[in-house]
Design a protein around this nucleic acid. Structure first.
Ligand SMILES: [Mn+2]
Ligand SMILES: [Mn+2]
Ligand SMILES: [Zn+2]
Ligand SMILES: [Zn+2]
Lengths: 140, 140
DNA sequence: ACTACGGATGCAAAAGCTTCTCATTATTAT
DNA sequence: ATAATAATGAGAAGCTTTTGCATCCGTAGT
C-alpha cells in the first residue's frame, strides 16, 4: 500500500489512477503552486491521458478532503498546492510569477483580534503581498 | 461644473453620460462594494440604458485613473469601490456577503518588513478575512 | 453655433476558466 | 467473478470579462 493510496483512502476517496497521478504530480512538482491547466499539461507530457474535467473534479475533491489548498492569486484562475498542514501566506512577483511563502504570527494574531473586535467568528483569511522579486529587481 | 465632471476631467477622461452615471452610482450606492453586474443592473433599474461592456470598460478606466479600487473577493468576480484615498482591507461574511473594512498599522508594517526580508520591492497587497458576521452568528 | 476629429458606446461575438451532462469504464464489497 | 456504485472522458454549457466593429458623441477650433 503506497502512501498515496492511504491518503486517498483516509480521505474517503476511491483509489483510481487519475487521483494517484494527480497526487504524485503535486508531490513531485518543482513549483509547489500549480493551476489545473498546469497539472493537466504536465500529466499529458508524462504520457497520462487524463481529462481536464477530471483534473478539476479531483482537485476540488482534494480541496474538500483537505489534501490540497486552493488559492486565488491575481489573474483569476485557481492555484493549488499540497496541504502539508502548515498554514502560510504568499508573496508573489508581478514580473515573473515567482511565489514565496511566509508565516507571521504577529499578523495572524492581529487578524484574530480584528475579527473579534468586529464581532466576526473567523473562518479563514487570505493575504497576498505583490512585488518585484530579487531576481527581477536587477533587470531593467 | 459638477464635482463628477471635474473628477473625470482630472483623470483625463471625456465627460460622457455613461461615465457620469457610473460614477454617481458608485458614490450613492448603499453598499460601497459593487460588481460590474451590480452597477449594470442598478443603472437599468434607474432607467439608464448603458451596455454591460461599457460598464466593464469604464470601471477599468476608473481603476487605471485611480478613481476606484478593484477587489477580488472569494467567488472570482471583481468588486469595485470608490477610492476615497484611504487604504483599507476587508472582512467579509461568508453567510450573507456583508463586507466590513479595517486598517491595521501593525499588519501594514509587518507586511513591509516581510517584503523587505524576502528581497521584494512591494507594489501592493490584499488581505481578506472571512468569517460569520454578528448578525449571522445568532441565526441557526 | 457649426464642423471635424478622435475617442466612446452598444451590440454581438469570442475568449478564458470552470462546471456539468451523460454514456462508458473502473473500483469495491460480496 | 458479479453486482452495485462511483469515477472518468469528451464535449457542451455556464459565467464573467474582453474584443471587434459600425455608429455615435464630446471637444477643440472656427
Ligand atoms: Mn503556498
Ligand atoms: Mn472597501
Ligand atoms: Zn520576479
Ligand atoms: Zn452575515
Amino acid at each position: 500500500m503506497s502512501t498515496e493510496s492511504n491518503h486517498l483512502r483516509k480521505a474517503g476517496l476511491k483509489v483510481t489512477l487519475p487521483r494517484m497521478k494527480i497526487l504524485e504530480m503535486l508531490e513531485n512538482s518543482e513549483t509547489r503552486h500549480l493551476s489545473a491547466e498546469d497539472v493537466y499539461k504536465s500529466l499529458l507530457e508524462s504520457g497520462e491521458e487524463i481529462g481536464l474535467a477530471t483534473v478539476y473534479r479531483v482537485l476540488t475533491q482534494f480541496e474538500t478532503a483537505g489534501l490540497v489548498a486552493r488559492h486565488h492569486f491575481e489573474g483569476g484562475h485557481s492555484m493549488f498546492e499540497l496541504n502539508e498542514g502548515d498554514h502560510h501566506d504568499h508573496i508573489l512577483c508581478v514580473k515573473c510569477g515567482r511565489v514565496d511563502e511566509f508565516m507571521d504570527e504577529t499578523i495572524e494574531k492581529r487578524q484574530r483580534q480584528i475579527a473579534q473586535d468586529a464581532g466576526y467568528e473567523i473562518t479563514d483569511h487570505s493575504l497576498y503581498i505583490y512585488g518585484i522579486c530579487p531576481d527581477c529587481r536587477g533587470k531593467a
